[in-house]
């Protein structure tokens, strides 16, 4: 760590590690030390360099939905092991169980409905901490259920994506979730429904190549990595280094695949305005 980035606290008081103490948070991008309470209140955005760290599903919901109005649905749908998949170290259903304990979630997406500045919205929020936000049968089913609810109740559908792609352990069934969710969105669109897709860091693979890219409006958080193939796969295929900024939010906007890049602080307001403009 360079001297000028040293934390602004009195080191004479003791040799304790301020990060481990939990009082301070070190920004992984600019290394500046941020008071943990400020970091949380700022929804994990660095006040110094504007780095947007990952939010878990409920932190995200809290940052968007009017307090006390979110009603989670279908959180009783859980994964099974349809292929009897075992990677040699751990059976797939145990891997899911570990992820549940680690994240306190049932799966990589939380769905439900609530109010956004008083407007009724249907929400699906992915959580990268649950097996890399991978899409298996449960994620596909819950996203589809949410879309079907949006059609039924004529609510705006908002999906926050964060995913490394399809969940390999469910084989072909995870691939089929791409078709299932996209078909549901076709129905929503035919019914005149409004779908806003919000891409957060990272959104790649089967999620990008299905519902995430099908928004009537597509929003991205600043600097989010968004792509079909992961950067490592591309580098291995073409055997060359990728240019800086490749597959980042601004790159996608330049190439015409993202409508608006919105900072986390302005997300709620922007979503509200979009719903207002279209209703």
């Amino acid at each position: 760590m360079a001297w000028f980035l040293k934390p602004k606290y009195n080191i004479k008081k003791g040799l304790h590690n301020p990060v481990q103490d939990g009082l301070w948070h070190k920004c992984p991008t600019c290394n500046s030390m941020i008071y943990s309470k400020d970091w949380e209140e700022n929804f994990k955005v660095c006040p110094n360099c504007d780095f947007h760290d990952k939010l878990n599903a409920f932190e995200r919901i809290q940052s968007l939905i009017d307090p006390g109005t979110f009603i989670e649905t279908n959180n009783n749908i859980v994964s099974v092991n349809p292929l009897d998949f075992n990677d040699g170290k751990i059976r797939y259903e145990l891997k899911v169980h570990e992820a549940m304990e680690k994240t306190m979630l049932k799966e990589a997406v939380v769905i439900g409905h609530g109010k956004l500045n008083g407007l009724s919205v249907q929400l699906a929020v992915m959580d990268f901490s649950f097996l890399g936000g991978s899409m298996g049968s449960v994620v596909g089913e819950k996203i589809t259920l949410a879309i079907e609810e949006a059609i039924k109740h004529k609510r705006t559908m908002i999906i926050f994506s964060a995913s490394g792609g399809a969940r390999m352990h469910e084989g072909i069934l995870s691939l089929m979730q791409m078709a299932k969710t996209s078909a549901a969105l076709k129905r929503l669109s035919d019914a005149g429904g409004f779908f806003i897709s919000v891409l957060t860091n990272p959104t790649t693979g089967g999620v990008t190549a299905s519902f995430a890219m099908l928004g009537d409006i597509i929003i991205s958080e600043p600097d989010a990595l968004i792509g079909f193939a992961g950067p490592r796969v591309i580098e291995q295929t073409i055997r060359q280094k990728l240019p800086p900024g490749f597959q980042r939010a601004a790159f996608l906007q330049d190439h015409g695949f993202v409508d608006i890049i919105v900072r986390r602080k302005e997300m709620k307001k922007t979503l509200y305005e979009l719903i207002n403009y279209t209703h």
């Binding site: 791409m178 792509g227 190439h255």
Partner: peptide
């Protein structure tokens, strides 16, 4: 598989596939 290359990403490989899934279903 769909080709994982720089140009494919620039021209929206993910969007092209997603759009195809969406349209074919109807």
């Amino acid at each position: 598989g769909a080709y994982p290359g720089i140009e494919g990403e620039e021209r929206g490989q993910a969007e092209a596939i997603a759009r195809s899934l969406f349209e074919m279903s109807g």
